[in-house]
Design a protein around this nucleic acid. Structure first.
Lengths: 363, 363
DNA sequence: GTGAAAGCGCTAACAT
DNA sequence: ATGTTAGCGCTTTCAC
């Protein structure tokens, strides 16, 4: 295996010293004889020289790389986030290391340590398990952690900054919409509710019910198999199972809220499995508004996250901190999500079985 | 920013030398006094020491990392591939650097160089533009390139090994199935057909038509906007547009083949946009068999790729070569895909407008 | 069993 | 305007 040329090989080929080559490499060629520069460039080209990033980083301590930790790459939403983050980072001359933690705190910690070991000093964390304790040590050491879709907690906060959609508002909007349509029994399908975003969405669900004076019913909150460390590579599968479970209840819901669009799409399948249809028999709402939402039949009502803007904002905030720009307080941006009403929601066919004296709401 | 402790700090804290710490770190503790080891471990723990990967790599030249270059993270298929590759690599003690090249040869080259610079010497390349020329230089330098879903070319091959589904067979199976159902005008929706996998699928499409004695009609091959460098972050959008275009033709197809499932799902939407339905008016077949395929309504007939097995095979082959195990010939594994027939395909409602004298195939 | 010393490929302060 | 030099944090002979 012919190994790569080093900076000294280039220097020799160009008849200069290594420092000169280094200077060319790093744009310190202000007062350099253009002939020298030309020879160096030619030598680099000819030898196909590529600097050794490890050596450079060992020396400078800088590596212009940020980490991105996401849950579940099976949901296109996270893929798109990765894309947007990558584009934004590239604009600052940064690279992105993509890590898929599968909603596992331990995996997340491992990744974060790997990143730290690799010299990465800034990471965007999207949808971490509830507590950040597992990252506290790193943060104290100097890792800058930006939260994506993670409302910030109290003091001793690990997150240096964050950008998040207001999940409570989003959840409330989704459920409020269903209530306005006349639904009184509204189910929610989700994987384990152990991330801030999910807790927020659930809180929004409860808030909307409370405001409308509808009693909470824990039986309507389906959290999926409670296997520890169980990810959701297959949110759609879980959504399907959850919908079937909820609709098999003695007093089934007339509407289902998917914790994200993949769950909602799975719920479509679950509804159909039982010979029912969306939205005639069961309304379905999702969260994220991935592009599939307007592809499926019926098109999915969903809570939109302005993904691109959020990604750019998170990257900018993170890099500002990394570059030591004096930033006063931790900046926690919360953007307001927007409910996009499509065809998957409609008034309930009939009221639920309860003797509440609700008037019949015809379809 | 409190900087991390180094190996010397640990050595001092444990009252030993740096070499001893290094030995503990690297499992060379065969004949070490267990007390010494214990003290070292305690010091590591207490200081929260983490080795500096750059320094280690600079010294050893090894970094136990492979790269994975995929197109389009918006398609869950690639997300799942990333997941499987990660799992397989972890089994060998390797990490994975995930790169999203958006089907752009230049981006691919940039990523590959970045990987090389970072000390990565093995990369899995999935769905590259047709030619590998842009990577030839790196391969000659010693980068081991494993192809995923890339049939190998001729001599001077860049790929050290590859694992691929037989795209020709898969395409032929999909189209053959449609032909058996009685379809004679079959369209195909795709982004630019500039990757080996897509060329293969198109070849399968043509082979099936030829075998059945159906004349090829270039008008039925929709390749999407021919914008250069245009990725397909939104295969579904393209599938939708393509389906609408094809169905608007004077002599429209009765069936549509999506170059992958996202295109096929988009085609569903396109069909519905025109007030038609799947499969009554138009049959649709996809490729990949992502989990969404059995979620949507109607469930999607698709050509299944055994993703997990392929990923494991590619990782194993790549790492074997990286570790210099004497491997004779380049190993190019081709697996046979399987057509999964679901509800999106049915006999055509009526024959196409041509005076071919085909008998009416009632639904 | 453990420590001392050299050096991986690069950068940056300093010397020329 | 270019070259010399001294490490960055770790691993790894080789001595003790």
């Amino acid at each position: 295996v012919p190994n790569s040329a080093g900076i000294h090989d280039v220097a020799r080929a160009a008849g200069v010293s290594a420092s000169t080559v280094s200077n060319v490499l790093n744009g310190r060629d202000h007062r350099m004889r253009s002939d020298t520069k030309r020879r160096v460039l030619a030598a680099i080209e000819e030898l196909g020289y590529m600097p050794n990033a490890s050596a450079r980083q060992l020396k400078t301590g800088q590596n212009k790389t940020i980490g991105l930790i996401v849950p579940s790459v099976a949901n296109p939403f996270w893929g798109l986030l990765a894309h947007e983050v990558e584009r934004a980072a590239m604009g600052f001359g940064y690279k992105v290391l993509f890590c898929n933690a599968e909603r596992d705190a331990e995996a997340e910690r491992l990744y974060a340590e790997m990143l730290w070991s690799s010299g990465v000093r800034g990471v965007i964390l999207s949808s971490s398990p509830l507590s950040f304790e597992h990252l506290g040590g790193l943060a104290r050491r100097g890792m800058v952690v930006a939260g994506f879709d993670q409302q910030t907690g109290g003091p001793g906060e690990v997150l240096a900054c964050s950008v998040s959609v207001d999940n409570v508002v989003g959840g409330r909007a989704a459920i409020g919409h269903l209530i306005e349509l006349g639904h009184r029994r509204i189910g929610i399908v989700s994987g384990a509710i152990r991330t801030r975003s999910r807790v927020g969405r659930l809180a929004g669900y409860h808030a909307a019910l409370d405001r409308a004076g509808i009693a909470r019913d824990p039986a309507l909150v389906w959290e999926g198999p409670s296997v520890s460390g169980f990810g959701d590579t297959e949110g759609a599968q879980l959504g399907r199972a959850g919908a079937r479970h909820l609709l098999g209840l003695p007093d089934p819901p007339t509407a289902i809220f998917g914790i994200n669009d993949m769950y909602a799409l799975g719920a479509y399948a679950g509804v159909r499995d039982l010979g029912l249809s969306v939205p005639e028999d069961v309304s379905v709402v999702g969260f994220d508004d991935i592009s599939l939402a307007e592809m499926v039949q019926p098109t999915l009502t969903s809570v939109r996250q302005p993904l691109g803007a959020m990604a750019r904002s998170a990257v900018a905030a993170l890099i500002a901190r990394l570059q030591g720009e004096a930033v006063e307080e931790p900046a926690h941006v919360t953007v307001v999500p927007q409910l996009v009403v499509r065809a998957s929601t409609a008034p309930p066919r009939r009221t639920d079985g309860r003797p509440h004296g609700l008037k019949e709401t015809a379809r």
